[in-house]
């Protein structure tokens, strides 16, 4: 464990807490893409298949359980909760995310560390996570204005993978045989996809104005 990875995990945790706060405090999921939440639930379920077989550390196991439980809780809440579900922007959240799942799975079959069940699903989860934010970014683009908590949620979600890139660079120079090029390339793509969001987020922060995405 290094400071970059710990900072990344904490940033990721903060993004989830901000999302839960937004839904719980405002009893509304307006501006949140259910499709992105479903993709993230799939990412965690397919990435942590080794949850009960490979014990890494207490921290690792607890974080995996938190990520799986929180992503499933948000999906269930957005689908089932009678008050929250009414605020879901159903007609704005129309990204065809099944294509993202299909593309990630095909790529995982072609590009993986080893052609085994666990490695293919791990690569699938890495590729899918890089693309999972697209429905959310499209939804924000369409809805135009971004409420504070939603903006912070997306910001922290994008920032965590940037910390992981620093972690991979650090581990590359400090550990022999360390090679995570699948995660690293995918993490780079993932962070770049947030570039324009980060730009408009920074502008709104500098002008202390409400965040506006160009329609």
């Amino acid at each position: 464990m290094n400071i970059f990875r710990f900072a990344g995990d904490m940033t990721h945790l903060i993004s989830i807490l901000v999302l839960l706060l937004k839904i719980y405090a405002t009893k509304s999921c307006s501006g949140i893409s259910l499709k992105t939440q479903e993709l993230y639930a799939l990412v965690f379920l397919t990435r942590y298949l080794d949850l009960f077989t490979d014990f890494i550390s207490v921290y690792n196991t607890i974080m995996k359980l938190v990520f799986i439980a929180s992503s499933l809780a948000v999906v269930c809440c957005m689908r089932m909760h009678r008050v929250v579900r009414r605020s879901y922007d159903k007609d704005l959240d129309t990204f065809r995310h099944y294509f993202l799942i299909l593309a990630s799975f095909v790529l995982a079959l072609l590009v993986n560390e080893k052609f085994t069940f666990q490695e293919i699903f791990w690569a699938f989860s890495i590729y899918l996570e890089a693309l999972a934010i697209l429905p959310q970014l499209v939804l924000l683009q369409r809805s135009g204005n971004v409420d504070n908590l939603t903006g912070q949620y997306v910001f922290f979600l994008g920032a965590y993978r940037a910390f992981y890139i620093l972690n991979w660079i650090y581990r590359y120079f400090t550990e022999q045989h360390f090679s995570r090029w699948i995660a690293c390339v995918s993490g780079l793509v993932q962070t770049v996809l947030y570039a324009d969001f980060f730009y408009y987020y920074f502008i709104s922060w500098k002008n202390n104005a409400k965040m506006q995405l160009p329609a």
Binding site: R5, D9, H12, D50, D54, I56, N60, M63, K64, F67, W122, Y164, N167, E175, H177, F178, S179, R180, A183
Partner: peptide, 10 residues
Amino acid sequence: KASSKVKDEL
């Protein structure tokens, strides 16, 4: 060697 084999990251 073990560390790079086992997926020790989240």
